Amino acid sequence: MKFKFVKMQSLGNDFLVLNQDFFIGGKLRLDSTNFKFLADRRLGVGADQILLIKKLKDQRGDIFEYRIFNADGKEVEQCGNGARCIFKFIKDHNLSDKDKISLSCRAGLIDVEKIGDDFIRVEMTTPKPGAKEIGFNVKGLEKNQFKNHEAYWVPWQSQFKFCLFPVSIGNPHVVCWVDDLYSPRVSEFADWIMMSKMFSSGVNLEICKLISTTEIQMRVFERGVGETRACGTGACAAAVSGICLEKLQSETDIIVNVCLGYMIVSWSGGSEDSVFLSGPAKTVFTGEIDIEQ
Rank of each mutant, 00 (worst) to 15 (best):
G135N: 06
E206V: 15
L28A: 09
L11D: 01
G261P: 14
S104W: 10
N13L: 01
Y182G: 14
P166N: 00
E123M: 05
F136W: 05
I120K: 00
G279A: 00
V178P: 06
E77C: 13
E113D: 07
G269S: 07
F87E: 00
K55Y: 09
K100E: 11
M124T: 07
I24F: 01
V122I: 11
S268E: 00
I216S: 00
N13A: 02
G61H: 02
R121G: 10
R60V: 15
C231K: 00
D180A: 12
D273R: 04
L11E: 08
I255W: 02
M195Q: 15
I115F: 00
R121K: 15
R185N: 13
I193E: 01
S104M: 12
V6M: 03
S201I: 12
I134D: 01
C244F: 12
S212M: 03
E227L: 10
D111V: 10
V112F: 08
D253W: 00
V284S: 10
G25C: 05
L51N: 07
K91V: 15
K161I: 08
V240G: 01
L109F: 11
Q157C: 05
K91C: 15
S168I: 07
D99Y: 05
D62P: 14
A190V: 13
S268R: 06
I243C: 03
V284A: 03
F165K: 09
L95T: 13
V275Y: 03
Q145D: 13
L205G: 13
D273V: 11
A83I: 05
G226Q: 02
K247M: 06
I216G: 00
K74C: 14
G242S: 02
H93C: 02
D72Q: 07
G44P: 04
I120Y: 03
G270I: 03
F87S: 11
G44N: 12
V175N: 12
